[in-house]
């Protein structure tokens, strides 16, 4: 059996079609950071533990370190850089600023993306629902009180109309 060494693929990243040649063992995280320069997606553990590399794949949060880039070909991917539309912050982003849901900020893109997908599904969450939804993301600064406040506040800001 012949293994295809190089794949020509495209992704729909942050609303734009991006074509590139990749190798089959490259992870989506590596392609985003190293090939496309989207360094807002962070590598915290590379082993599906911390959630710093979270991106939205077809609007669902995934650990991009656990997705092979070839698996994601042709799919819609949203990274933290794509959450801001036409210079306007996503309500979750604004809330994290207003409620100090940030310390060192390394985990922030992952938390913000996970929270944005969660709020798309859950209109008026309880604090416990927020905790459950974010339990796959680690913040070692442990800014969890302020992160929960940020997400709850964003849920009250009203949903942004999706494109």
């Amino acid at each position: 059996m012949k293994i295809k060494k190089r794949w020509k693929v495209f992704f729909l990243i942050n609303g734009k079609r991006r074509s590139l040649t990749i190798e089959p063992h490259w992870t989506l995280l590596e392609v985003l950071r190293d090939q496309l320069g989207l360094t807002g997606t962070k590598k915290g553990c590379d082993r599906a533990e911390c959630g710093s590399c979270t991106v939205l794949l077809e609007r669902e949060p995934v650990y991009s370190c656990q997705v092979l880039a070839v698996q994601a070909r042709g799919q819609r991917i949203t990274t933290i850089e794509g959450l801001t539309r036409n210079g306007k912050l996503h309500p979750v982003q604004q809330s994290f600023i207003d409620h100090d849901g940030v310390q060192c900020g390394f985990c922030t893109p992952g938390f913000v993306l996970t929270a944005s997908a969660f709020l798309d599904r859950t209109r008026r969450p309880t604090p416990d629902q927020v905790k459950q939804a974010l339990s796959g993301n680690i913040c070692r600064c442990n800014a969890y009180v302020k992160i929960i406040e940020s997400v709850l506040s964003a849920s009250k800001r009203g949903k942004r109309i999706r494109d």
């Binding site: 310390q103 442990n142 969890y144 302020k146």
Partner: peptide
């Protein structure tokens, strides 16, 4: 507050 909450 964030520092204290995080430290705890």
């Amino acid at each position: 507050q964030n520092q204290v909450e995080g430290g705890v």
